[in-house]
């Protein structure tokens, strides 16, 4: 194993893994983190801790990851390129490693115009692919960017990156995935899958390029809460493609029962994804709906989660 990550062990052992997501609170409410962690514990193999998602200021991913870890969850600390230059990023990664955080997910980050600090200056000193490269250098060579000096202590982290099969140019997306793998990504979590056909086309190309042999791909899924949420996501969330049939099922669900239909659709998607060759797991993004994760994991026959040290 390259790292102490349990996620790595499970993936290398060939398990179909389940990761979840925990959004830090808009404040220092540790109890809120503990509450979410309690809902997810035992049902996911690792949990992504988002990094000021949608550019809204929240408790830092590094601090939240530590709290999650204390609650018995293995964190995947997300890190976006929007807010830190390469000095701050490498410093925070070293700090995270010192705190025992074993996984990191490297992302570009949503543009700041969407958040509550719309007048801020973004950084993007390096991009997500360059961050993956910096992570690999930190871990495998124990060196910083542009420096040949060895660091004082190993930085052993399992390196993740994101991929979106549902954004243009579709034809180029597998090649961008290839760049991430070549930069050093050990695992990939995708944008949420609703359209299985487009996803299979992307995955099939990834297989042809030999990428599913070189990294572990986890398909993102989101349980829809209501017809309104489905319509909003279908129409307004950049990089999401939702087939009309799914929107219709959600809109047609009896009043107050949208969530039941949403969980059902999510489990059906997971069932279909489990059958796809070259897929190593699912990433369940139950945004502010963590309490549904146990049900989804159970209904999708992914419970209990494998025990491994």
């Amino acid at each position: 194993m390259k790292t102490p990550s349990r996620l790595e062990k499970l993936l290398e052992a060939g398990h179909f893994v389940v990761t979840g997501e925990l959004g830090p609170p808009k404040g220092n409410n540790v109890a809120a983190v503990k509450k979410k962690a309690a809902l997810l514990r035992g049902y996911v193999d690792a949990v992504n801790i988002t990094d000021n998602q949608t550019a809204v200021v929240r408790m830092s991913s590094i601090a939240t990851a530590v709290v999650a870890q204390q609650q018995g969850l293995e964190p995947v600390m997300q890190m976006v390129c929007r807010d830190r230059n390469r000095i701050a990023m490498q410093s925070d990664i070293i700090g995270a490693a010192a705190l025992g955080i074993p996984n990191v997910l490297c992302l570009s980050g949503d543009h700041q115009q969407f958040g509550n600090q719309a007048h801020s200056k973004n950084v993007f000193d390096i991009d997500s692919i360059q961050l993956v490269g910096a992570m690999r250098r930190l871990r495998d060579e124990n060196k910083l960017l542009d420096s040949d000096e060895k660091l004082d202590g190993p930085v052993k982290m399992f390196i993740g990156a994101a991929a979106n099969p549902f954004a243009e140019p579709f034809e180029f997306r597998p090649y961008r995935l290839k760049k991430k793998v070549e930069a050093g990504a050990d695992f990939i979590q995708t944008q949420c899958v609703f359209d299985l056909e487009i996803f299979e086309q992307w995955l099939s190309k990834a297989r042809d390029l030999g990428l599913t042999e070189r990294c572990h791909i986890l398909a993102g899924v989101i349980p829809l809460k209501s017809g309104r949420m489905a319509k909003y996501m279908a129409e307004h969330v950049p990089g999401v493609i939702m087939p009309e049939a799914i929107v219709k099922r959600m809109v047609d669900a009896p009043k107050g029962k949208g969530g039941i239909e949403g969980v059902k659709i999510c489990c059906e998607l997971i069932d279909a994804l489990k059958e796809m060759k070259g897929l190593s797991g699912v990433h369940i993004m139950a945004i502010e709906w963590e309490k549904k994760v146990p049900k989804i994991v159970e209904k999708a026959n992914l419970f209990p989660r494998p025990a491994i040290d």
Partner: peptide, 10 residues
């Protein structure tokens, strides 16, 4: 970014 496009393309 130098290795685009990011995942947000609409």
């Amino acid at each position: 970014i130098f290795n685009g496009p990011c995942g947000g393309t609409q």
